[in-house]
């Protein structure tokens, strides 16, 4: 029973409560970073790290932080983690750091991290919070990669440096703001369609 609960927390972040397609949190980097799959993966891994660490730390200190000042406390923890990540990436993965330099400070203001801190880590134990952080992080990474896949493919005709079809047939608008909203909207609609179909099926099964 206990094991089931942990597994539930883990998978709900990936599918049932996917941060991008279902909760609609963390939209800013989702739209800004997904012009290429490589950036999306880098961003996703960075978010997994920060989300896991912040969930663990916040659930550890949840009982000693006063309610009135919780947000400033949480956000300073997150900002410090992001600064840490930035320094770490600069030291060990300079190439990746250079390619997504602008986006790293943006992780601080990724709503999904503070959102989880508020909604989950400040109410649950350390282990559950860690599982929730990893599940949500993986869900976020997968969502980013899916959006980036379509935007990069349709917008440039290439995928991770590999030219899939000639660039002259590409639709450049997919790499701009318009394409970002359009891709995300369509994909969210499809995600909803799938969950609706499954719901219908389940209801029919009961009746």
């Amino acid at each position: 029973m206990k094991k089931n609960e942990i597994l539930n927390i883990f998978t709900s972040g990936i599918f049932k409560e996917n941060p991008i397609f279902v909760l609609f949190l963390g939209m800013c980097p989702t739209l800004g970073v997904t012009t290429s799959v490589v950036n999306a993966i880098g961003m996703g891994i960075g978010v997994i790290f920060v989300l896991l660490m912040s969930n663990v730390i916040i659930s550890l200190i949840r009982n000693i932080v006063m309610d009135e000042i919780r947000i400033p406390v949480f956000i300073v923890i997150i900002a410090s983690l992001v600064t840490l990540l930035q320094m770490f990436m600069q030291a060990y993965t300079l190439e990746l750091y250079n390619s997504m330099k602008v986006f790293i400070p943006l992780i601080t203001v990724n709503c999904i991290i503070l959102g989880r801190a508020e909604a989950f880590a400040s109410k649950n134990g350390v282990f559950k919070s860690a599982v929730d952080g990893i599940g949500m992080g993986i869900g976020f990474l997968l969502g980013l990669v899916v959006v980036a896949f379509f935007r990069e493919l349709l917008g440039t005709g290439a995928l991770m440096g590999l030219q899939v079809f000639p660039a002259q047939f590409a639709i450049p608008i997919f790499t701009s703001a318009v394409g970002a909203f359009l891709t995300l909207g369509t994909l969210a609609g499809i995600a909803m369609l799938i969950s609706n179909l499954r719901k219908d099926k389940a209801e029919k099964g009961v009746a």
Binding site: F181, L184, G185, T186, A188, G189, I190, M192, L193
Partner: peptide
């Protein structure tokens, strides 16, 4: 039905 809410908002 599937596009109600956020998907249509994004479009």
């Amino acid at each position: 039905r599937s596009f109600k809410g956020n998907p249509i908002a994004l479009i």
